[in-house]
Design a protein around this nucleic acid. Structure first.
Lengths: 197, 197, 197, 197
DNA sequence: TGCTAATCGAGACGGTACGTCTAGTCTTTTT
DNA sequence: AAAAAGACTAGACGTACCGTCTCGATTAGCA
């Protein structure tokens, strides 16, 4: 699929060709996975997808928009539910680190963050995305609050923020191979601080 | 200074001309401060510094190297010493956010992080720099341990990591205007978790 | 034309834009005519033609190729037909010298010859061009042979070579203002040597 | 000598060091012989001679000046004296072609001619040099005049010009492997035209 | 059935920036 | 005073992408 199927792709009339869109997104993902952000260019994606550059620009107004959509297609890491907040958070971080390390997702997300530093639309898209993920992560804390494990007045969003920040920094500084002990220690410093009395 | 003083700068013999180095670093800082990372190019810096491109490449092998050195020239935020760990950390973060917001430092550091996502040398330089800052931040925790405020078995490095991660993420997602309450809450979740019994 | 008309020139689809090609060739000619070979650079041509450098490199693989094509666009000096071989050759040389002196052609051809000394492709192109011109010049001698003015066993190519050599050397050593008497004398030494008995 | 001996050459006090001058000229000759005109740069010569660029510029005001001096150091082709003008001229041209082909002289002289097309000082120097060689070549014709072989009213300078032009063009268009028959034919067309009645 | 309209791959266009090379000038240090 | 050394500004080299443009071919839906 993708590269091979692209050969000879044509217009299917006066409407968007989903095959082209798919080929472009797959090509973008492949380029990012193989060459990383530095090798990611519209030209490279167009070449690989056997698509014309205007076809890309028609549907994604900027490199950032394409990047964001590629990241959104990635599988999400689920938040575990072990009945214990420390285990939930450690498990989540471990899964996330593995996911980022072993799939193109890590490279792609690094690229999105990098792009957001110079492109406003990427920054907005990243902020939107981040907000969504935060509420998702917050559910782990809310569950713990419901169990009485975590104090009722704890702001789940801020806790989620601390956890996500820890993950981001490890991604952005190439420390996804952090050992479990360190992850667990970091998590414990937070969970201890938010426990119910 | 800088632009004007640069006019007519010449070689001062078979050794590096500090005037040129300064002019280049100042120009780089100015470009980053004004146009941000997207406007930052070796050509733009050379133009502004009235320097030849080879002069830049002679001393800074890559855009990343120049970026890092520009950041290193920036004023550092000092770690306060109030005798209370929560106040120390809140004060540090507040100062850091203000510093990043009100000087070119923020834009510059964002650029360094972005560059490190695609340039290996930038990644290494950033890792080095980060390590140094971490031990600096750790001292706040070590002092608190010495005071008996923080438990003796706490890993100061991991705490510093959590604090720095929180700061980075706010920088990278344009949330440097976070109100003090939120900062204090986040800090408290950590300090509570590391307090001596 | 040229500079002004170039404003706003755009792509006309996935094929060469003749307007751009013309603008580039005209700019190249103008640069050579005004600044000579030493001022001739791809950058200068691109600037003047308001063309991008890649547009030039797309169609002319080297400075030499552009130079040759510019020369080929120049008006040719015709070989006169007076019914007398001496008059034909003297007239030809006089016309050629005037043409080289009073149009950009001289500067351009000097540049081609110079370029051919360091660029193999220019050397090949020049050899090709020269071969074509030689057969053209030979026709004057062939006509004289047909008239019985020149001996039948004379190699017209070699005679053409002698004439062209004389012209080249005058061009390359800045002696295009040679007076007619000298030209005629030189021609006569040759024509006398090739006369029918 | 040259490259090796140059290592560690130093100033010999407040006067020109002939070793340096030699090393530079030899390096220039070697560069031209090996890489031709396209590889000939002051930097390349300085590198090879282990000399500083200013040392070259102190003694040779331009690339052209250095080029000319290098050519002047080359061995000259002597004009034969066989007692027969045709043999003299054919022998001279054959020797000259072999010399240009088998020593760096050919490449060097091509470079001088090329340089003279864009550098005025080179043009002047070449004109001077050419004048000297012309009178030298003229002696063959003058001798033939003295022998009564060539008519008394023949302008030896113009004949020398025709011969030199023929040689130049063969050099500049890479035809130094011309066979003797062609050379002899060309010479004969001229000698027949200048014979005494 | 023929026309319109939007899409597709393709690739040229004017540009900007890259990182390297050379030109020619300058100054210090050593002899 | 002249040498080596190597820095300096300046600018050309040839390449890679940017985002825009126009083409000719394609096909669905409307007339």
């Amino acid at each position: 699929m993708g590269d091979a199927a692209a050969r000879g792709r044509k217009s299917i009339g006066a409407r968007r060709n989903p095959e082209s869109a798919d080929a472009i997104l797959e090509a973008a993902e492949a380029v990012l996975g193989e060459d990383g952000y530095s090798g990611f260019s519209i030209e490279a994606v167009a070449r690989r997808a056997r698509a014309g550059k205007p076809t890309i620009y028609r549907w994604w107004p900027s490199k950032a928009a394409l990047l964001i959509e590629v990241y959104k297609r990635q599988k999400r890491v689920e938040t575990p539910d072990t009945g214990n907040i420390e285990e939930d958070l450690v498990g989540f971080l471990k899964n996330l680190f593995v996911h980022w390390r072993d799939s193109p997702s890590g490279k792609i997300f690094r690229s999105v963050v990098a792009e957001a530093q110079s492109d406003e639309t990427a920054a907005v898209a990243l902020a939107d995305y981040t907000r969504g993920r935060r509420s998702h992560t917050s559910q782990m804390i809310e569950r713990a609050k419901a169990r009485g494990e975590v104090a009722a007045d704890i702001d789940a969003g801020i806790v989620a923020d601390l956890i996500a920040s820890f993950a981001w920094r490890h991604l952005l500084t190439d420390r996804l191979d952090e050992d479990e002990t360190t992850i667990r220690t970091a998590v414990r410093y937070i969970t201890r601080g938010i426990m119910a009395a």
